[in-house]
């Protein structure tokens, strides 16, 4: 699923984030922030979010760098 959600009108520039900005954001959103167990995020405790993030990002970076 690749949803493309409208960001808030106040802050949306319509431009995709630069990779560095996305990494900065994920550094904080996945690594920090208040951890309150929601009804569903409890089940995510077993997922290593850092691995998820790196896997997703490296896959994407490689896809961009390697033409085939």
């Amino acid at each position: 699923m690749t949803g493309s959600y409208p960001a808030l009108s106040q802050t949306s520039s319509g431009e995709p984030l630069q990779p560095v900005a996305l990494v900065d954001l994920l550094d904080r959103l996945l690594g920090a922030g208040v951890v309150i167990s929601g009804d569903l995020t409890i089940s995510l405790a077993g997922v290593d979010l850092v691995q998820v993030r790196l896997h997703a990002l490296i896959t994407s970076v490689r896809a961009e760098m390697v033409p085939e």
Binding site: L29, L30, A32, G33, V34, V35, I36, S37, G38, D39, L40, T41, L44, L49
Partner: peptide, 9 residues
Amino acid sequence: PLRLATVFL
């Protein structure tokens, strides 16, 4: 701010 993807029923 909460962590990404904190969802309640």
